[in-house]
Write a protein that binds this DNA or RNA. Structure first.
Lengths: 220, 220
DNA sequence: GTCTATATCATGATAGAC
DNA sequence: GTCTATCATGATATAGAC
């Protein structure tokens, strides 16, 4: 019985931590807040995860394991269907960023909460977290990069690399901007409610990303 | 004499804080680190700024005052030259993001250090900092938004708004990515050294942003 | 204006009973 | 596995001498 509860406890801690990290950041969230929100004992975090740092990593691992698998699955499926021919850039972009945005509508995968957390964390100053994320992303990014190189053989690889980076940034901010920072969005655009906004984000973002990816090359 | 030193002390604190905040984040930087690096006394931060929070705001205010003024000056100059005619989208994008990227080469304005800090901070979870930044940006963003609306009368305003947001995100990550996170950049692109990379960032980014801004509208 | 010394508090982590 | 109680640390902020 006591052992049975512990599975719940682990998940409850992870869920509460994910929400609180998203709202207040890692440093802005204490273990007392987490255990309080989860309705578990303070000491249970260290019992189950060992440390706060390990808890942070587990919050990401739980979601990224699925996301990575899914992204690879989607890419592999498309490549098999295409045979020897290169994929279209729009397919590749859709596979990478569409899969990500799809999580927003899937509460079981963390939904918007996790996406916002992930977007912000890509630029987190803490070393251990950047290293960890880079490791988690590496394989998938390599595969998608290779697909883009093949799809755009005439574009210098350095250029594609940069544009991949630009796309990542645009996407992260788009997610955060759905309700976090309102620098640019907040205006006389009252013909949409919040739900519309999220539904329409994906096609909007995809158009933008593809436009950027296929833009004329810069002259140095 | 004692009074004369205080100007130096203020600036020394701000310089040290800016560097440390960029490297380790706000929560990851203690006032002991700041005063230690600045070579001033621990108590001087509270004497000169009142609190750590106020210090954070002053670090930004010092740089953004110049950036905002410069962005408005550039836009006003272009609009006067254009008379009644709308500006070209490329001019507007260049005025907003080019002015920002120009700071990277200007050590007296904070250089790359401040840009990285600014980019990351746009998604900082702390309320006081998001509110503060939104206030600081507001006037300039309104002016540039209006210019884009005028330049692209056939594009729905909501669409332009989102694309502005996407451009902001791409730019922030591009800056951070010059040496922070290396998700996508880190490869067999050894034909460029670090200096080249920064010099070439601006034209690369501008091409991407304009491509995205002028992409075909999404179909919902 | 500058400094030392210190008050006050919150944090992450753990020891040890149950 | 769970809980209480507590330790050790490091943080911001300030009082008060110079």
């Amino acid at each position: 019985m006591a052992e049975t509860r512990s599975v719940d406890t682990r998940e409850r801690i992870l869920d509460a931590a994910e929400k609180l990290f998203t709202a207040n950041g890692f440093d802005g969230t204490s273990m007392r807040q987490i255990t309080g929100a989860a309705g578990v004992n303070l000491a249970s975090v260290n019992y189950h995860f060992g440390s706060k740092e390990a808890l942070v990593q587990e919050v990401f691992r739980r979601r990224l394991a699925w996301l990575n698998t899914e992204r690879l699955r989607v890419l592999t499926t498309m490549e098999q269907a295409a045979g020897d021919k290169p994929l279209k850039p729009s397919q590749i972009v859709e596979g990478f960023f569409g899969t990500l945005l799809g999580m927003a509508q899937d509460e079981a995968r963390g939904g918007v909460t996790f996406l916002r957390l992930l977007g912000r964390t890509l630029t987190d100053p803490a070393d251990f977290i950047r290293t960890f994320l880079a490791d988690e992303y590496q394989e998938v990014v390599e595969r998608y990069k290779a697909a883009l190189f093949k799809a755009l053989p005439d574009v210098p690889r350095a250029e594609i690399a940069w544009r991949f980076h630009f796309m990542l940034g645009a996407t992260s901010y788009a997610i955060a901007g759905t309700d976090a920072l309102r620098l640019v969005t907040d205006w006389q655009v009252d013909d949409e409610d919040a739900t519309d906004r999220l539904d329409r984000l994906q096609p909007r973002l995809m158009s933008f990303l593809l436009g950027g990816l296929r833009a004329p090359l810069p002259k140095f």
